[in-house]
Design a protein around this nucleic acid. Structure first.
Length: 486
RNA sequence: GGGGCCGUCGUCUAGCAUGGCUAGGAUACCAGCCUGGGGCGCUGGCGGUCCUGGGUUCAAAUCCCAGCGGCCCCA
């Protein structure tokens, strides 16, 4: 039995696995000595940029344009929408000084940018022809988290995208919410292989200032839920607070309808790493892997030159075909290189020795299922392309199975209690996700540690007449998804 | 929100109970040799404000206090 480079039990001790891999695969460095702030090293930053690219492409394809608003928000702006400021003020970092001078008006480091965007929206939007307005920015935001922080999962500064859209009608705004969910499906599931459930959050758990909140939860290896994106129907609450109004075709002044969308780029990466990885380290989706193919030369001294030449031939061919490829010419032994690049999650390894040189073949190793195959040099590009796709499909299928095995159904409180420690989702009848259900949610949290995450948007089924809320016993208004979350 | 554990070369760690020698080792890294289809090995070298600040003491990595940072558990 060979030793492993990484060899940490992911399913037995996920927390330890996660803490180790983010450091050992040089994803982030958490030794920056400010709580909740981390350094992004190249291996994670390359992937974050790829995820940004995927998301930005989808947003722009659907009519969004990029912008960048200031990091600071004056207190007056932040306070304009009452519920919003109440929700966020406890976690705002304030800039209070410039040099030795105390600022007359303190400035918030944006915890989210509604109140930065919307004063300008008020100026930009005059008539119906200015609508719809669909803008996004890729940036970091700051939140003074009091809970314990975790790299890529909960930080005091984290990376995301925020899209802020404005429409003339409620219908268009709700259509945008659907479009936001479609984008999430396209990027997070189709391209990155991370399955999730989109839920309408209960009223007591919505984004502060929104009318309704919809959010994507995935299931992490320890069974806890992680929210990786959310989209909010804001109605006219902000447009009234910020005077975002337009003249309609009849000349009447109307307040606009708004949505905002926040895919958590950090958390999407955390989910990709956690869900696909194994005890040997990372398994990266082909689409975002910083290196897609690593070429490992194998030679004894007298064969060095032909092997290196052949490696470069392979390298140039793959590079030209558009792949991210590197040759590992370092001084380590081939075995050491194998272990290293497996830990780093590189999807495909090309092993090249004298055998390959002489037969004009390449030996390929797949990280996801650790299998080998041999291909002819002239079909290499085509094979890599096919393998990249197959690897994604394979890890996506596994992740989907993992999720499906963690969706349970229960009809009574006792059944829920028996399932409470299994992790994942429990679907159960519940009185209401409106404010009148909040007391039941609090009781459930206290008794079992479970949160009401909301009702599904796809295939939403209403409980039959006889179904009772698992907590209060009143008639159930909804089937809700329950779970423990990060 | 509540509770617990922890902080020593880049990394892991010994030493701390009972204060006392130049803070020891492994790994990584560098140089040289050797080697190469799943982690060879050898020789030498580099590397530490013992988290920070204060206190107790003839003497502090070790005891006390505060802060900073990290991890875990519970609600």
């Amino acid at each position: 039995m060979s030793k492993e480079t990484f060899n940490v039990d992911k399913n037995g001790d996920f927390s330890n696995w996660f803490n180790r891999i983010i450091r050992e695969a040089q994803l982030i460095d958490d030794r920056y000595n400010v709580k909740g702030f981390i350094v992004h090293r190249p291996w994670s930053m390359s992937m974050l940029k790829q995820i940004y690219r995927l998301y930005e492409d989808e947003l722009e394809e659907r009519g969004h344009k990029p912008v960048l608003f200031p990091t600071v928000i004056p207190e007056d702006n932040l306070s304009k929408e009452e519920e919003h400021v109440e929700g966020f003020k406890a976690e705002v970092f304030w800039v209070t000084h410039g040099g030795d001078d105390k600022l007359e008006k303190k400035l918030a480091l944006r915890p989210t940018s509604e109140t930065a965007f919307y004063p300008l929206y008020s100026l930009w939007i005059r008539s119906i022809s200015d609508l719809p307005l669909k803008l996004y920015q890729s940036c970091s935001v700051f939140r003074y988290e009091t809970k314990s922080t975790k790299p890529l999962i909960r930080g005091r500064e984290f990376l995301w995208i925020e899209a802020h859209d404005v429409f003339a009608t409620e219908e268009e705004a709700y259509k945008q919410v659907e479009e936001d969910m479609e984008i999430a499906e396209e990027v997070i599931y189709e391209k990155l292989g991370v399955p999730f459930v989109f839920l309408e959050r209960p009223q007591w758990d919505k984004f502060k200032g929104a009318v309704k909140t919809f959010a994507a939860d995935c299931v992490m290896p320890d069974g806890k839920l992680l929210q990786i994106a959310s989209t909010h129907y804001l109605g006219q609450r902000f447009s009234k607070a910020f005077e975002i109004a337009f003249l309609d075709s009849g000349g009447a002044r109307k307040y606009a309808y708004q949505t905002c969308y926040g895919p958590g780029i950090w958390r999407i990466l955390a989910a990709v790493i956690s869900i696909h990885g194994d005890n040997n380290g990372l398994i990266l989706p082909f689409e975002i892997a910083p290196i897609q193919v690593i070429v490992v030369p194998i030679f004894v001294r007298e064969h060095r030159e032909p092997v290196e030449k052949y490696c470069m031939e392979i390298y140039r061919g793959l590079k030209k075909a558009g792949f991210r490829v590197e040759v590992d010419f370092s001084d380590k032994t081939p075995g050491a290189k194998y272990y290293y690049w497996e830990m780093m999650g590189v999807p495909i390894r090309a092993e090249v020795g004298l055998r390959e040189v002489e037969s004009k073949h390449v030996t390929l190793f797949r990280r996801d299922n650790r299998s080998r195959m041999t291909v002819q040099l002239d079909s290499l590009v085509e094979t890599i392309r096919k393998l990249g796709y197959e690897i994604l499909q394979n890890i996506k299928r596994k992740a989907k199975e993992f999720l499906e095995l963690r969706v349970f159904k229960a009809k009574t409180f006792d059944e829920v209690r028996d399932l409470a420690d299994k992790g994942g989702f429990i679907i159960a009848p519940f009185c209401s996700i409106d404010f009148d259900g909040e007391s039941c949610a609090i009781r459930l949290k206290e008794a079992l540690g479970l949160e009401v995450r909301g009702t599904p948007l796809k295939n939403r089924v209403k409980p039959s007449e006889e179904e009772k809320c698992i907590v209060c016993g009143r008639k159930a208004g909804e089937y809700v998804y329950l779970g423990k979350s990060y």
